[in-house]
């Protein structure tokens, strides 16, 4: 098919150029702002962030995503919930344990049993353990 004036690369190139132009203009504004005020302009809304918690939350979430295909959703989810609750300041073992286990069972029933979604079961021994767990819970 003969390509016209607007080819496959025209649109993305134009958008990236526009984004670069907006970024350059923004940098110029910030530069002028800084030189006029003699101090760097404020960039956030004053929300107080806890760096450690921030890194922990991002790491936990990314770790959950990486763990799903390896150990399966059934085993990674309770660990994720427990980690998230601990990160959120919940320290009572009973609360953490109950919410993690019951929450995971609820998630499995909802998505695997009711919605029939083929959620990852993990690899090797984890897959066998997931199938055994599903049988135990009556999901399979």
């Amino acid at each position: 098919m003969a390509r016209g004036v607007v080819g496959p690369a025209t649109w993305p190139k134009a958008m990236l150029l526009c984004a670069a132009a907006a970024a350059a203009l923004l940098a110029l504004v910030r530069l002028l702002e800084a030189s006029a005020l003699r101090k760097p302009p404020a960039t956030d809304d004053g929300t107080d962030y806890h760096e450690g918690r921030s890194i922990g939350a991002v790491a936990l979430l990314l770790g959950y995503g990486i763990a799903i295909p390896l150990v399966g959703i059934a085993w990674s989810t309770p660990v994720f919930i427990a980690g998230w609750l601990l990160l959120g300041g919940i320290r009572k073992p009973l609360t953490v344990g109950l919410v993690s286990i019951l929450g995971t069972i609820g998630v499995l029933y909802f998505f695997v049993k009711l919605s029939v979604m083929p959620l990852d079961r993990g690899k090797g021994a984890f897959e066998q353990a997931t199938v055994a767990l599903y049988r135990l819970l009556g999901i399979y």
Binding site: L61, Y64, G65, I68, I73, T77, F80, I81, W84, L85, L87, G88, G89, I90, V99, G103, V107, F111, S115, M117, L119, D120
Partner: peptide
């Protein structure tokens, strides 16, 4: 923290779906 944990799980499963 409990509400947010489940929002994260629903989001991940939703993206998979």
């Amino acid at each position: 923290a409990i509400i947010c944990a489940f929002i994260a799980i629903f989001s991940v499963v939703g993206a998979f779906g």
